[in-house]
Design a protein around this nucleic acid. Structure first.
Lengths: 338, 338
DNA sequence: GTCTGGCACTCGGCCCGTGTGAGTGCCAGG
DNA sequence: CCTGGCACTCACACGGGCCGAGTGCCAGAC
């Protein structure tokens, strides 16, 4: 195993490299950190760290830079989460408190996160699967045309058009609306299917077809629309990425446009606690030179969605993690209040 | 005035520069275009064009590149709109036909436009001001808490929570819902205020307060939510921008994130016909080295929103304009059908 | 008058050789 | 096990020289 000092050297290398963006050498290291040993000793340690694959040289006889594996060790064992300062937390709360609806909450969150971390922020809309039903509304737009509106406890609204085979009377409609609501309001989406299963039976023969159609559309909405939406922001921060621009940034921008990819990425993050994926740990090809810091957030104790940032592997992990965690907490609070 | 040949020279310069991204000289011009004159003559013409401010040299004794004014002339007098090929139009229609709802239409449009033009696409959601009301729904979430849902003919849904001073009975609610709908369904947003003006009077004294509240929220929604949304895509195409990357691309990315800026930009475009803003004609600072091609689209003969692309001033104007116009037409058709 | 070929001039970009400095590995001695 | 010393290696910056595309101008042809 690596000695305590060697870990200390690795930590110093990561910190310096994150700050300067330049390969760090043994001499500079001893000057900037009180390691209590000479450059020569550090060199030996560096050689050992390189053998283990934690650091690498861009070219012979230049300084060292951390590898993905090095960052991994740094995040896991050498760094904590840096809490935000009081003013920062105040600012977060103030900013988020001004939100008027769900879109606004998500929009503000994304901007906030981008600004705090100076990186690309990704915020997933609260997922439908884990939310509960606040209200289901059925409207007759035409004799044989209905609109289904689903309202969730997170404030999201989904609507669907339904073409019925046969006209559906106003009384039947009111009836269905009432029964549907009495059964599903306040229930979780996942419980809905079995709760409405037997509904058609209680209707007149003529109406059963339409009722079934409505129910299947409702269930479809619940399931299909689990396909979640997300918002991204702070792409301008990509310009701080590196020097070899076009090649680095292009695949990242492409990946960011593929919301499916991002959703998968967030989906892979742990439900609780923070997940940090570094460089090649990200499955997606365009993101192998980026790191993703993600965390779940929710109105209660359970996470309803995730948010995070995407940045260069060379990022300030403690600071980023602190910001991500803090923002997630406050967003959770805001959602709980509304 | 400039002679016919000089205009021809300008056209050739623009075309070559757009193709090669490199300053174009007199010799190369005569080789690539049948101008029927010698390089020396072209040089004289170029000198004249430069005097008039249509072209410029990046540095002494390099080729010429068009100025904003040069592009302006090119767009206004020298270039037409290049129609898309039949396969291209087919592809557009097929791609857009698969859309399932408004979000999907806008999403597909933005991707399509980005792909066709290989630039950044911007699509504004159909505006509320010009649409008509398809349905207004009122739900009682709690005795003194209502939800107002507004559905437009473009498929958009807006919801608002309303806290009432006093409880509002189910019958009054149904009454209000019915009267509201009979008055405003199918009407334009702008007409709604005067149509509902006298509604409170026809209600019991007790309910008037609540009715007024509901109406004011409705009107607020109509007016305030004129603040339009938009979707952008194809930002990865920014990497094809130029060589002096970070400096050019950063302000553009920032501007693109400011949806307000983009909405203003689109708002400045003419309602009918295509608008091309070149370089410094764009008020926003970050976009002075870009051109914006925008056009209105709509389900009927009138435009309900706008779409367009943002790209480097050095862009293929005829092709871009052709793509933008074609996409706008097909989106209009799709919206009219649904 | 207009176009053309010729000519001298300019200047950015490329190639190349050199010098410098940061960094390395290794080794002998404390 | 740590340290100072030493020889070695490269990336990179600097400067000079060459090249070539491009220009402006001018005298002569049509």
């Amino acid at each position: 195993m690596l000695s305590e000092r060697r870990l200390e050297v690795l930590r110093a290398i990561v910190q310096d490299y994150v700050g300067t963006e330049e390969p760090v050498g043994s001499k500079a290291l001893t000057e900037r950190h009180q390691l209590g040993v000479s450059p020569a000793t550090v060199r030996n340690d560096m050689a050992a760290l390189e053998d283990e694959g934690f650091i690498a040289q861009p070219h012979t006889s230049a300084g060292r830079i951390p590898t993905d594996k090095g960052y991994r060790l740094f995040v896991d064992r050498l760094a904590g989460v840096k809490p935000l300062s009081l003013p920062e937390r105040r600012a977060i709360q103030n900013f988020l408190d001004g939100a008027v609806d769900l879109d606004d909450v998500v929009g503000r969150t994304v901007r906030l996160l981008a600004q705090l971390t100076r990186q690309v922020a990704v915020v997933q809309y609260p997922s439908l699967t884990r939310s509960t039903v606040r209200h289901v509304e059925l409207l007759a737009l035409a004799p044989a045309r209905l609109m289904l509106v689903l309202i969730t406890d997170t404030g999201r609204v989904e609507q669907r058009l339904i073409d019925c085979q046969s006209p559906f009377g106003e009384t039947s409609l009111a009836d269905l609306r009432a029964r549907l609501n009495s059964r599903v309001v306040g229930r979780r989406f996942t419980d809905v299917p079995q709760l409405v299963q037997d509904l058609p039976e209680s209707f007149e023969q003529d109406d059963r077809g339409t009722v079934s159609t409505v129910l299947s559309v409702l269930l479809e909405t619940l399931v299909e629309e689990t396909e979640e939406r997300l918002m991204i922001g702070g792409t301008a921060n990509l310009t701080r990425f590196g020097h070899d621009f076009p090649l680095t940034i292009r695949p990242v921008l492409e990946a960011l446009e593929e919301h499916v990819v991002l959703l998968k990425l967030l989906g892979e993050a742990k439900d609780s606690g923070m997940t940090v994926r570094i460089g090649h740990e990200n499955a997606h090809e365009g993101l192998t030179s980026t790191s993703v810091v993600a965390v779940g957030y929710g109105s209660g104790d359970e996470a309803v969605a995730k948010l995070g940032v995407v940045g260069p592997t060379r990022m300030d992990y403690p600071g980023t993690m602190g910001a991500v965690r803090a923002v997630a907490r406050y967003v959770g609070q805001i959602l709980a209040e509304s």
